[in-house]
Design a protein around this nucleic acid. Sequence first.
DNA 1: CGTGCGCTTGACTTTTTTCAATAAAGGTGG
DNA 2: CCACCTTTATTGAAAAAAGTCAAGCGCACG
Lengths: 229, 229
Amino acid sequence: MEIIEHLAVSQLFKGLPNVHLEGLASISIKKSYQKDESIFFEGRESTGFFIVISGRIKIYKISPEGKEQILHFFGPGEPFGEAPAFTGDPFPAYAEAIEDTDVIFLPKNEFVSLIKKDPSLALNMLVILSHRLQKFTNIIENLSLKEVPGRLAAYIIYSGGNENDASEFSLDISKGQLASLLGTIPETLSRILTKMVKQGLIDSDGRRFIKILDRKGLEELAEGKRRLG
Amino acid sequence: MEIIEHLAVSQLFKGLPNVHLEGLASISIKKSYQKDESIFFEGRESTGFFIVISGRIKIYKISPEGKEQILHFFGPGEPFGEAPAFTGDPFPAYAEAIEDTDVIFLPKNEFVSLIKKDPSLALNMLVILSHRLQKFTNIIENLSLKEVPGRLAAYIIYSGGNENDASEFSLDISKGQLASLLGTIPETLSRILTKMVKQGLIDSDGRRFIKILDRKGLEELAEGKRRLG
DNA sequence: CGTGCGCTTGACTTTTTTCAATAAAGGTGG
DNA sequence: CCACCTTTATTGAAAAAAGTCAAGCGCACG
């Protein structure tokens, strides 16, 4: 598959006319990373940004004690690392492939030149960045206003889809990673999951399978109207 | 002072040629809010965004139990509420004036039309949004990776400026608001502040005056290398 | 078939919140 | 200018939540 085709289906560039896609393709560089390989480091100078072609990556921070907080997961079609490319600041976090991953790299300077010529491209980027901001707003809300059971409940509800039926799903990340995403540690996550099963809120095979049994109860947890005890 | 002059000195539009400023001014609406007056509400439809002329506002979320998490403070020259204007999503948080405040309101549709004609305007917005994203990255890091003493230490160091001398300053917000900004409650903040004074890290008059006595100690706290006990 | 990594569980410690009472500060009206 | 009232800040004691440390289990993979 050609780079230009990947660009054409990416969040950032979908809907752009072919002329612009060609311009973008001409500055694009394809790169590959293996599972667990680093893509960029916190503090490093940004020279451009990325779009995932295939595979998955995570963006995360690490505390001095070694605790990891995941900020994002990104998969095919999603761009990452765009913000520092515009501010000129160094990367504010780490990026690492969590599967074998192919990406397109867009060098900063060339990209800014293109954007200066094309408002619609810029508008797309504005929408994307605004969405990221929304997402962060939610993460912050969760971290500061909810206890861990509430965060987990919110995650489960979100992952289970909105339907009342079909409320079964499989975690697409490991429990350790989920703990980090929720701003906690695996032990705490494990205990809470156990309590949820005991209280009949969910069913679980102990592995990645989860079935929602009491959606209303989960919602109450997420809204802080209920405790796990 | 004319609207166009305010626009010319705002973060978002500074450096723009006069033609564009005039276009912006022609769609701008000036509004005033009193201290503690609401500007927008979480969940409401966004019809445009704002730039502070004078005064100050806060953006915050509220949990079902009534706990407040402040996301931003914005003062003169700073835009707010831009993100939902691009995504079309409703406001993700509340905005409220914390002083008597004048703002410029820019209606969404008119603004998007302007941007479509002017890439440089869009580029400025990209930089601003990217910076916001960076700021959120830090907030998330602080909330999830640091204990409250660490967050407070980081806040004090930041507020005290980088110089080794002149390390005195006055909090520009109430302690209750500071607690919310740090993702905690006033009682906890008060206790930690007391400990910091007792341990000789800072001096305080019990009101808003704070003097940094042991910058290195504060840095160790912020980095999790030290406990307050 | 053993080794390893991810996950779970238990006991214990630390941190933060809750609840309640008090104190101090700021603003208002007489 | 002072008394009063409301808001904001502090303090203590107790409870709750989350994290640490350590041990053990089980499934996957070589």
